[in-house]
Design a protein around this nucleic acid. Structure first.
Lengths: 211, 211, 211, 211
DNA sequence: GATGAATGAGGCTTCATTCAT
DNA sequence: CATGAATGAAGCCTCATTCAT
């Protein structure tokens, strides 16, 4: 293979990645503005100003497109968690920061939540290895913080770090769902509390494992 | 069965409402057997042995049908909570029973969970007054148990009963979602733990509010 | 069920049959004019001046539509065979008439041949019971003529009637295919012979079993 | 291998024609492994490790590619016929061998049959001169055997060699189609006969022309 | 009230072919 | 010569909803 071929290949490959990214961005935009249910290949193609068939050059099918979107959201979440952890050296604070980062992320990217939920809810869809890995990376990060907390005697020794990491994930998703969808109801039931509500949840969860 | 339920039933006991109920039963059967995604008006009509158009005489559109189905699930859930509370006179046990009843209900009626999620996730859909009422009835029941617990000095006085009732709802839904959809992942991460996982969550939540 | 309902049902059922027949006729027209490859649901809908979805009220999918078309062609063929048999009391003449009827049918309905071939060629497609039955009806008719011929000592006693019925079917289809598709080539190779060619085939086949 | 084949090969032995041959080989591989319906230009390009556009440098369109594939199959068939003829000096045996070789070829290369049928059935497609030539080569070979048989007084003098050569072709293709697609039906109708069926056909055909 | 045939927009996906590089 | 990304028409099918009877 000639050098020129290689370099062209390289050029093309990065161009291909860019295009792929562009499509993902457009899909993201649709999900963000109109919700996951409105995400159709046709809509993505229109948004990206590409032909429908072109989308299929970059994604095998709609499911893969959604998987990639989910992957991206998990990667961002992982990053947010890292930033939250970096804010404080204290493990308990780090746990709190993680839970708050989770909420922040979803509030800033309201519809992203649907993407996380999508694979949460569509039991039928198999997660790709990549997607699984991204999920595990998040889990492992949280577990490491929890192990640290246990070593320092901050949380009860009976606490199972892995189980609690999953509990953090599951319950925060549930909380955010409620806040997202039942906002009016929450405000009605808890007037004047707003954001405190989520913090209340965080407090209780932390107290639940503190020694 | 509470007075309000009975009186509503009485209100509904016309021929028209019987048929409405029949349609709902058929829709429920479909959701339970085949999942929400298979719930089409055509399928409901076939199951109910009615014409498609007839369905639209009783429900404005598909959305309302789903709303009514959700309503029914909330009524059942309310009943299950009552039963759970009746099992023990001790408020903390009652709270635990409520959380366990929640899980049991969704595990026994796997697909019902989709209905809850549906309204949890489709922020756009307005809950009908009836639906709201049913949600509030559940909330009030839980709040009364919590107030009782506080009166007896079993939970910390700072605990906001209404807020915690919602937290119970939100987090248990999150937990059940995770267990439902990520069953394999949970088993992989927590080998040999199985059902303990949910109990672990209940323990932590309770410890989080116990005085 | 009231009488009026029943009569309406009956009226509707026959109307439904008519509509179904209309769709089949339109599909037939397309196959006859443009070939099987041009038979799309959209084309049928346009020809029938119906919406696409309407087609699916009468046929589960495209495959079933084609099956019904094939069924019809087999029914017509059966009729043609009966007519051919009625032309002569002599079994050997009857066999000849069957083979000629086969050719006539396909020449009069050129593209119908594709339909017969369709199921001949698409091994993947399962024949419906109805379709099978129609095929068997033809086979049985031919077999009965052959049995008759054998009883009268007109064909060799070793001849297996069923096998030969299938051989008649298979070889005549092959002959007609050749004539249909390679018309020019046949004319080139056998100048001035034209129709004689098929008769030649019939003669040879008959001589092959005559005692 | 005949002189004409060799000389054509010689003509073709440029780099361009090597690549053309390579593409054909890959296309053949796809048809043999996955069937004609899976033969897409994209698939051929992938198999040949060439760009899609490159395929179009060597073949005007998909149809031509298929035509060339058919050509190849005819060349192989010609070779098989020659081998069949070489097995016996007796013309009638040679005819039988030709018919059997035909069946063997299609049974060993099941999907090749689709190629033959493709051109047999798509009346619209014009055969290229090369394709015609290959067809004629086969015909001429068979005709020569028949002429030989007639000279030796083995077959009836009225037999038109050219016509019968075509009849052999047409009917054997029909027989193989039936066996290929209606295997189950043949087995059902003729239990325990299997391969005998084709031999029965061969016998009848031979008897049909024997003097 | 009840019916259910009809609608048709919209969803996903494929693939022969072109054309700028 | 070679490339392969891009095209977009066309195919199949679903289903919420309407409306004439």
């Amino acid at each position: 293979m000639s050098e020129s071929t290689i370099s062209r290949r390289a050029r093309n490959d990065s161009a291909k990645d860019l295009r792929r990214q562009h499509i993902l961005d457009c899909a993201e935009k649709i999900v963000l503005h109109k919700g996951l249910s409105q995400l159709s290949i046709t809509a993505v193609a229109k948004e990206a100003k590409l032909a429908i068939g072109t989308i299929y050059l970059y994604f095998e099918n709609k499911e893969e497109l959604i998987a990639q979107l989910t992957l991206k959201s998990r990667e961002i979440l992982l990053q947010k968690f890292r930033e939250g952890i970096a804010l404080s050296p204290h493990p308990l604070e780090q746990i709190r920061n993680i839970l708050v980062a989770s909420q922040n992320f979803y509030q800033e990217n309201k519809f992203y939540h649907e993407l996380v939920s999508f694979f949460e809810i569509n039991a039928g869809l198999a997660e790709t290895p990549e997607l699984k890995e991204a999920g595990l990376a998040i889990t492992h990060l949280v577990v490491s913080v929890l192990e640290n907390a246990k070593k320092q005697g901050l949380i009860r020794p009976e606490t199972d770090e892995k189980a609690f990491a999953l509990i953090m994930w599951a319950t925060s998703v549930g909380m955010i769902q409620l806040l997202d969808v039942k906002e009016a109801m929450v405000r009605e039931l808890l007037p004047g509390k707003g954001q405190d509500f989520y913090n209340h949840y965080v407090d209780i969860l932390l107290r639940g494992i503190m020694s």
